[in-house]
Design a binder for these strands. Structure first.
Lengths: 170, 170
DNA sequence: TTGGAAAGTCAACATGACTGACATAATATC
DNA sequence: GATATTATGTCAGTCATGTTGACTTTCCAA
């Protein structure tokens, strides 16, 4: 967009970081990193009767206590049938509790119980440990770039959600 | 690692980017971005009788033509039974062909056919389009940071593989 | 020649997605 | 007040992808 740099296929710009080869490396990096990223919580979940879907539900309920089923649905991007199976077991096992909406009594607001918050902490801590190590190894400016690229990659609706929740509650 | 910056909980260093809050945002960014990252090829695969697993197989066979089943197995991190089901359909449909190893005749070396390469290009182009847009939006130095953090996040074995293949063949 | 590695196959099962159909309750609209 | 819509929950069935375990075939190498 600015400097007419050294030759690249696409034009007169300095777009060497946009070659197909660079993009393919980025794709592979996402694949390998995401696998590692989910591996630690998966290992914890293994013993329990829960899976990755439960982890995600618990994560977002923790992030935004009192969110409705519908909101969680659109954040997770799954069908209500799929989410319902997950929520049902979490409620039965006393990890999540629902409260009927005050304004709109059709809505169910979701909260973690103490027990649920405990599991969330355990899973999250495992995942954060890896993230922390990666952040530390790469340094603050790399982390900023990491976040920028991921953000640009998201679908607009979720990017909106993501940035709204940015540096949100504890 | 360098500048003794403003106060952080952890010590005298500038570790504000390592707060739990920052780490949680990174976790969510990974989750949302990965979903978007797989969405485009998934849409293409939908019509065909293939899934994400087929895409991954085709991707790595394209990256490293002639790799053995065992190598692909460890790159993908699945069981041979799981991979076999995928490979069988790809071979039956004429997207992948195997050649018996010259040195070791037990090994099967995997190659894409013309047809297979066609599908790979289609899937890959969809995925690269999103990656390209994100790279362009974020800029070269953000991309460098992105790659650094992802690399630091990988499991050591796959990081080794990844860096070995770095900017490898077309 | 025999042990073990590489590959392939069969069966059974779990998880987490999906669609479609339907029920209930509460809100919103006409 | 009747009707439509929304939010949620549930049942049933399907699919893709992963898993274990058991077993066979092929073939290299000690």
């Amino acid at each position: 967009m600015s400097e007419p740099g050294a030759g690249a296929k696409q034009g007169g710009e300095n777009l060497l970081f946009l070659t197909d080869e660079q993009l393919r490396k980025g794709i592979e990096a996402m694949f390998f990193a995401y696998r590692a990223f989910t591996a630690d919580p998966d290992r914890i979940l293994e013993g329990l009767a829960y899976g990755r879907a439960h982890h995600r539900a618990v994560h977002f309920i923790n992030r935004q206590p009192g969110l409705t089923v519908n909101t969680l649905l659109s954040v997770l991007g799954v069908t209500k049938q799929s989410l319902n199976r997950v929520l049902r077991t979490l409620i039965e096992d006393g990890l999540v509790e629902t409260r009927v909406g005050r304004k709109d009594k059709r809505e169910r607001h979701l909260y973690l119980t103490e027990k649920g918050a405990g599991l969330e902490r355990e899973l999250s801590e495992a995942q954060r440990a890896r993230m922390r190590a990666a952040y530390r190894a790469a340094g603050p400016s790399a982390v900023a770039g990491f976040r920028e690229v991921l953000e640009a990659m998201m679908d607009p609706d979720l990017r909106r959600y993501y940035t709204t929740m940015k540096d949100g509650n504890a």
